[in-house]
């Protein structure tokens, strides 16, 4: 159960961690942040420090009088049996808890994209998409054409491009200006989690035509 103790060298920038802590980060990127933080003590520490600042701001927050009834009701509920919320998703193999939560605790259902490359879409909507990619060693990572921000977290294996090599736990932050052509390192297949705020592109014609209608 020990998290992969890798030498993470590519971290998530503070601004993105702060957006996660304050709740302004879109869901698809939050999945990547929570997954990376599960693997990276450095970024976990930054997140918890940011939360300390959140706590300090909460302390100084302009208070609004609370209803005395609300207090009585709340105290009366302390003996209520603890709600059995859906159990928290646990890490499974190379997939941290936040990914297992998106998978609803089940193994990924891979779709073939050709050339041995597979993908599983975890979530897709107006705010972007997040998916798992499986790329055999030596193959190019499919270009999912980012128009905006893209975060890619390596879970297994590695890929490289002009900006460097990314191994397990590393996150590549790409934006419009980065014209990268990542290639999976030789050896074990590269599995990564990729989130983008650009709408998904499909390879076949029909879904592409439907895309603007369904906003996926």
């Amino acid at each position: 159960m020990t998290p992969v103790p890798t030498n993470v060298c590519h971290h998530i920038p503070d601004d993105i961690l702060q957006a996660y802590v304050t709740g302004s980060l879109p869901h698809v990127f939050s999945v990547v942040v929570a997954s990376h933080v599960s693997l990276c003590d450095d970024c976990r520490a930054v997140v918890e420090a940011q939360e300390a600042l959140g706590g300090a701001v909460l302390d100084g927050c302009e208070a609004e009088a609370a209803d005395q009834n609300l207090k009585a009701c709340t105290l009366a509920l302390l003996d209520r049996p603890i709600r059995v919320a859906a159990p928290e998703a646990r890490r499974s193999g190379i997939f941290p808890g936040p990914i297992m939560a998106e998978l609803k605790g089940r193994p990924p259902k891979w779709k073939m994209l050709g050339g041995g490359i597979r993908q599983t879409i975890l979530a897709a909507g107006a705010e972007g998409s997040v998916r798992l990619l499986y790329i055999p060693g030596g193959k190019a990572v499919p270009d999912h054409g980012h128009n905006g921000l893209e975060l890619t977290l390596v879970l297994q294996g590695a890929f490289h491009d002009a900006t460097g090599t990314f191994g397990p736990g590393d996150v590549q932050v790409a934006s419009d200006d980065l014209d990268h052509a990542p290639i999976a390192n030789m050896g074990e297949p590269c599995v990564c989690l990729a989130a983008t705020d650009a709408p998904l592109r499909f390879r076949s014609l029909v879904p592409r035509l439907l895309q603007p209608i369904f906003r996926i």
Binding site: P13, D14, L25, D42, L53, G60
Partner: peptide, 22 residues
């Protein structure tokens, strides 16, 4: 700072910075 930590949960523009403690 208060606006960032207490404000609404709409999505913000994200810019980059680096450098992390050990």
């Amino acid at each position: 700072i208060e606006q960032a930590y207490l404000g609404d949960l709409t999505h913000t523009e994200i810019r980059q910075r680096t450098g992390l403690p050990l």
